[in-house]
Design a protein around this nucleic acid. Structure first.
Lengths: 197, 197
DNA sequence: CGTCCAGTTGACCATGTTCAATACTGGTGG
DNA sequence: CCACCAGTATTGAACATGGTCAACTGGACG
């Protein structure tokens, strides 16, 4: 299957809401956010995609979100129709597609669970999720700004900032720089009442 | 494809979280809720399914939510593996499956948008959604309790109840009985700041 | 050294939660 | 037919969490 490599710069648009959904994408390096702008101007980030993640199939004919590169990002693109066509012959590919969409559903469902928790639980769940998806080590480098985190978690930037500070004071995390977070997982898990699959 | 009809009584379990995901289901009559119980005992309802809706494919191998009949409910069940197998031969079926999952994703995404709005907007969006999915007339009969609505919207039952009362006092809805709601759509839309697809 | 932008902090405020009391509704049995 | 009961819904008052608005900090870069 022909995959086209593409390069996007910080904050550049990958696709827009309501654009025809022509491609599926896989992140090679960098990070991507998908989002919608509400009428009142707020932005809701639906998901972050990190190296290895596949995105773009939140769509029938046209995309329901916009997608932007958070930082310098390399992607692979394949034609959506080509994938679906090939999947109609190859059981294995069909199953992979199915699983990928199921994973996507899982993520959105987990996100819904997040959004009904306290600010602290949201931030902790976010950090653990990013940590699990990027590195097995205890430190993570966030590619996204506090504003991105806030729009993802349905909080304000101030509340996110305060929560980071609080977690640091509790010894649950360390913040060598604003974008680098060292997790003390045992402490974090203790503070973490929720059941996020 | 062999579809088995099944009957479920009020509050009976259709499948449990972590059960093997053997079937896909279509609602013939009645109503279904899918939900997860959080560690702290709260229940998050992920979705309601109404006549015509297909559910059960929020799954790779096992379900990620439990499903219950809200009231007396008739379903059709088909083996998941049978559907996927047939989809690997039939392009049209594959496309239908794809679209159905995309719709499911859309719903979860819309739900995330809901959960970051005010209580009033959540309730209005909920009512408009149910209305759109059931009847073109201005009156709807809610199969679910206030507690169900609260757990779906991430609010308390008290807030839901207060919001219903408020909307009635504003003339945006009428409540002949607690489960029957007459929508004044123009008034509702005015009060409704959000951009829910 | 000054500017700019992202992030942090503080004080006050609004929205929704909590806890508790009260009302309604539908079904059952006298 | 009515009285009673249990489950469901509504209302009220005090409270807590996160939002808002505004001031301040700190680091990167010219």
């Amino acid at each position: 299957m022909i995959a086209t490599p593409m390069r996007f710069t910080r904050n550049s648009e990958i696709y827009g809401e309501d654009e025809a959904a022509e491609y599926l994408y896989q992140v090679v390096s960098g990070a991507v956010r998908t989002y919608k702008i509400l009428e009142d101007g707020r932005r809701q980030i639906g998901a972050f995609y990190l190296p290895g993640d596949i995105f773009g199939f939140e769509a029938e004919e046209s995309h329901i979100s916009s997608a932007e590169a958070i930082c310098e990002t390399h992607l692979l693109m394949v034609k959506r129709t080509a994938v679906i066509f090939r999947a109609s012959h190859e059981r294995e590919l069909a199953r992979q597609l199915w699983d990928a969409m199921a994973l996507e559903l899982r993520r959105f469902q987990a996100h819904s669970m997040l959004l009904i928790s306290s600010a602290e639980d949201r931030v902790i769940a976010f950090l653990l999720d990013i940590s699990r998806r990027t590195t097995k080590s205890a430190a993570i480098d966030l590619p996204m700004s506090r504003q991105d985190v806030a729009d993802y978690l349905g909080l304000t930037i101030e509340t996110v900032s305060r929560t980071f500070t609080q977690l640091e004071q509790n010894g649950a995390i360390a913040l060598p720089t604003t974008r680098r977070v060292e997790l003390r997982k045992d402490t974090l898990s203790n503070r973490f009442a929720q059941n996020f699959g």
